[in-house]
Simulated assay, not measured.
Amino acid sequence: MKHVRVTVAFPPAYRHPMHQFAVERDDVSDYRIVEWYPVGDGSTTLLLQFSGDADAYRERIATVDSVEAHHVADGPGDSVFVYAKDTQADASGQAATDFFVPGIAVVPPVAFNDDGTVTAALVGPGEDVQAGLSALPDEMDVTVESVTAYRGHATGLGASLTDAQLEAVAAAVECGYYEPTRSGSVAEVGEKLGCSGSAAAERLRRAEAGVMAAVAERAGGVSD
């Protein structure tokens, strides 16, 4: 069984309107699907999360015809949670459903990146994963980030974090950044990640916000 991480370039014609919104807005980042449930009537119920301007998101999603129902909830810090029932049936909707072919499990979260690409983890027999990727339209370039044997994935609190955030947390733990005496610095974390200390600090801040949001949600601290 293979664990294949891919980044797929979604040209504008294949992007959901809210993905395009995230691409266009500098004040929206870390936009991702946390959970989704395809329904027999052709619609999909989704739980999404991002960091940024909740009011701007509310205003935009209210204009998307394919979104039958939605609720936007402010979380701790700049975290925002979105419930949506979507019936997207055009090119972007078809491109998304092409991933859901027999034999493939799409492991959340699915990240909608600022450059219009989508990053996802696919689990299943190698030939089924290849078949699913081959079913995507020719215009959608696929970059295979990694192929490994599947040995589990982040669950619980860690499931709310992006791969980049998980990588930053792992580097910070290795450096001793989270030790009681804090023997490591963000500069050392950045060195391990190959980025600046300020960039590492921002990744850790977002990771910490994601974990705290998950804790608050589990404790009932995110209001309806």
Rank of each mutant, 00 (worst) to 15 (best):
G52M: 13
V34I: 14
A69S: 10
E174Y: 06
D30R: 14
Y57S: 04
G77R: 06
Q130C: 10
D53T: 01
A168L: 07
V144S: 11
R25A: 14
V23Q: 11
D41M: 00
P12T: 06
D141V: 08
A199W: 03
V123T: 14
V173D: 09
D224S: 08
L122T: 15
S160A: 04
G42I: 02
Y14S: 07
Y178L: 04
A172K: 03
H19A: 15
P109Q: 12
P125E: 10
D27M: 05
A135I: 00
A69V: 04
A219L: 15
D86P: 01
N113R: 15
V107K: 04
A168C: 12
T148P: 03
Y150W: 12
V64S: 02
A207Y: 09
D30M: 13
D141A: 11
L157F: 07
A95H: 03
M212F: 14
A171D: 09
G132W: 03
D41C: 00
F100I: 15
A121P: 03
T181S: 14
A84N: 00
Q130A: 14
Y150E: 14
T7W: 07
R218E: 13
V118Y: 15
S196V: 03
A214M: 08
G156W: 11
R60C: 11
S79C: 09
V28G: 03
Q20D: 13
T143Y: 03
E59V: 06
F21G: 06
T148A: 13
Y31L: 14
L166S: 13
A209C: 02
Q88T: 03
A69K: 04
R25T: 10
M140W: 08
R32A: 12
T155I: 08
V129H: 11
R58F: 15
E217I: 02
V67H: 04
R151W: 14
P17C: 13
V8L: 12
G124R: 00
G132D: 06
Y150M: 04
D138H: 06
N113I: 11
Y177S: 08
E35K: 02
T148V: 10
A171C: 04
R25I: 08
T87D: 12
V28C: 05
P38E: 08
G77T: 06
R5E: 08
E127A: 05
Q88E: 12
S160G: 09
R32L: 12
D86F: 01
D41H: 03
V169N: 06
P11T: 07
G52F: 10
H19N: 05
I61C: 08
L166P: 00
P108D: 08
R25G: 11
A164F: 04
V72Q: 11
T148I: 12
G190N: 12
K2W: 15
M18P: 01
A154I: 09
E191P: 00
V34A: 10
